[in-house]
Simulated assay, not measured.
Amino acid sequence: MSDESKVKVEPVALMPTSAGCAVFLGDGDKVIVFYIEPAIGASINAVMSGVKPPRPLTHDLFSQILDAFGAKVERAVIVKVEGDVFYARLFIVAENEIMERKVIEIDARPSDCLALAVRQEAPIYVLQHVWDDLRDMSDVLAELKDKGE
């Protein structure tokens, strides 16, 4: 995967919808959107807002476990879209006193990838060919923000 061209993106907005949460990712020129479960949206939003829950949420726990094993999220990559379903890969790097550096690539939902990436301040990418095929939703995001103000 490292040979494939990627676009670095960041979460630019998370908005509740009647069916869950809309996640808007952007690169500064273009914005894409996909939908996730409301609880994961709230979890991502809490981290981005600097809110610390009184008890660790599932993604906090997973992040703490990675830390305990000398591992970290290196990056998250959205690799495919089929219809309305997005597919992603999570790259974890582990290096500790027991083993040499090891890179692990895991199939994961984009929502889980985002939740972990924001916690570990890891970059988020979309494969270039996937990015190019997705509609720019900048106008929709701007319209939603205007309505919300």
Rank of each mutant, 00 (worst) to 15 (best):
L134S: 05
K52I: 15
A122R: 02
H59Y: 02
N45H: 10
D136M: 00
V9I: 02
A94F: 10
D133S: 15
E121D: 12
D139I: 00
A19W: 07
V7T: 13
A39M: 14
A117R: 06
Q64L: 12
V31H: 05
A108Q: 08
D107H: 04
D29R: 03
P11R: 00
E121G: 12
D27N: 05
K80P: 05
V12N: 08
A115L: 01
F34L: 08
L66Q: 11
L141N: 12
V93P: 04
F91P: 04
H59T: 05
I78Q: 00
A46M: 14
I78C: 04
V51T: 14
F91L: 07
D146Q: 11
M1E: 15
S2A: 11
L127T: 15
V103E: 13
G28F: 02
A13K: 13
P53Q: 01
E100N: 13
K102V: 15
D107T: 04
S138T: 13
I106C: 13
A94L: 11
P54K: 06
D3G: 13
I78P: 00
A22C: 02
L116H: 05
L25P: 00
E74K: 15
M15E: 11
A13R: 12
C21S: 13
A46R: 15
A13H: 12
V81R: 12
L25T: 02
G20M: 02
E143V: 09
L141D: 13
D67S: 11
Y125G: 07
E143P: 06
K145H: 06
F24T: 06
G148H: 10
E95W: 05
